[in-house]
């Protein structure tokens, strides 16, 4: 039973690693695969607020935009190394996340939703109007691709990302790292505090949880992950424009986690896979039906409504799922079973 599961997991991992060399993996398929990974990171990052803390975030891609433009500007105009861009973008994203959440700390969750909605508009307005920095509606073309180098260590090694394949592997590593971090946090004192806030803030406070402090950590962490996805995307797509970060994009990411199951990390990834794949299908299908490609948001909206009506917990409704499979809990389960039997 457990042996089978491990074998299945290894097989899945092997398939993921071998994916780029499979016969059907054209440049287009690889592109979609990388896009899925970017959105998987976004979905996992967004999940922290509505999924773990029950705070509805309607403006998550604002941080995606902040991360992307930070990376774009630093790489294009200042030739900054990728090793510095990533932590810089994450730190700036996290800071913006804290600033965005701060005014709502003493208010109920509804106010937070309103503030987040305003925030994405603000980010788009900033990107559109601060032409000196962002070139406004013209966008930022010609961002250099990612280049990994060890020159700062005095080692003469440099690798330029010239096709989809290195992005695929880097993206896989990014998804894996974010996934592990999310699982570790979910199954920790911090994650349990968030889930307590999600379930009942008043009872959580009565258990000694400082709501303001823990929400602030959630704001920063969630935003930092969004910015990470952004800085990967900027150097992958090599072009940025303010339009990419509009409200509808946030809505799409929200659909992903509602579909997968709010608060479930695996669900967030599945949601990203399903909706990005569906988006590609719709992009081909809708024009054939004589509809503009934007109609796909109607489809996402419909999916959202259907899920809420028929499967309100999403396809993976379990919360705190990581803890259930942790060593400590499995050991405890065995011990309790032994005691009951003996």
């Amino acid at each position: 039973m457990t042996g089978n599961k491990t074998a299945l997991k290894l097989l899945g991992l092997a398939a993921l690693l071998a994916f780029p060399v499979l016969p059907f993996s054209s440049e287009y398929v690889m592109h979609v695969a990388v896009l899925i990974m970017v959105y998987a990171v976004l979905a996992m990052g967004l999940n922290v607020l509505p999924g773990f803390c029950n705070l509805l975030d309607l403006g998550y891609v604002g941080f995606y935009g902040i991360g992307a433009y930070t990376a774009g500007i630093l790489a294009l105009n200042h030739n900054v190394s990728f090793w510095l861009i990533v932590p810089g973008a994450i730190a700036l994203g996290a800071l913006c996340g804290m600033l965005r959440g701060a005014p709502t700390l003493r208010l109920s969750g509804d106010y937070f939703a309103i503030v987040t909605f305003g925030f994405t508009e603000l980010v788009v307005l900033f990107l559109t109007n601060e032409i000196w920095l962002t070139r406004g509606p013209l966008g930022l073309p010609g961002i250099p691709p990612i280049a990994l180098s060890l020159e700062f260590l005095g080692i003469d090694w440099r690798y330029d990302f010239l096709s989809e394949i290195p992005y695929y592997y880097l993206g896989l590593a990014m998804v894996g790292a974010v996934y592990v971090v999310m699982c570790r946090i979910e199954d920790s004192r911090l994650g349990r505090a968030w889930l307590a806030i999600k379930e009942d803030p008043l009872a959580a406070a009565s258990c000694g949880i400082n709501l303001m402090a823990y929400k602030t950590v959630a704001f920063a962490f969630s935003a930092g992950v969004g910015a990470l996805a952004g800085c990967f995307m900027a150097q992958w797509s090599m072009f940025l424009a303010p339009d990419v970060f509009k409200f509808w994009e946030s809505f799409l990411v929200l659909c992903m986690i509602v579909l997968g199951g709010l608060g479930n990390i695996n669900g967030a990834i599945v949601g990203a896979v399903v909706l990005i794949a569906l988006g590609e299908v719709l992009r081909v299908l809708l024009p054939k039906l004589g509809l503009p490609a934007e109609t796909r948001f109607l489809v996402y909206g419909l999916i959202m409504i259907l899920i809420m009506r028929f499967k309100p917990g999403g396809f993976f409704p379990t919360i705190a799922a990581t803890s259930k499979k942790s060593r400590l809990i499995l050991d405890l389960k065995a011990r309790l079973q032994a005691e009951r039997a003996g």
Binding site: R184, I185, R189, R192, A196, D200, F221, I319
Partner: peptide
Amino acid sequence: IRLFGSLPVLDNVRIGRHCRAAQGFWGAV
């Protein structure tokens, strides 16, 4: 009654013990 209903019994007590423990973000990661 205000329990954390979607969480296991054990987690309710672990959360109750929150203020007598110390680990945070970096410890978890």
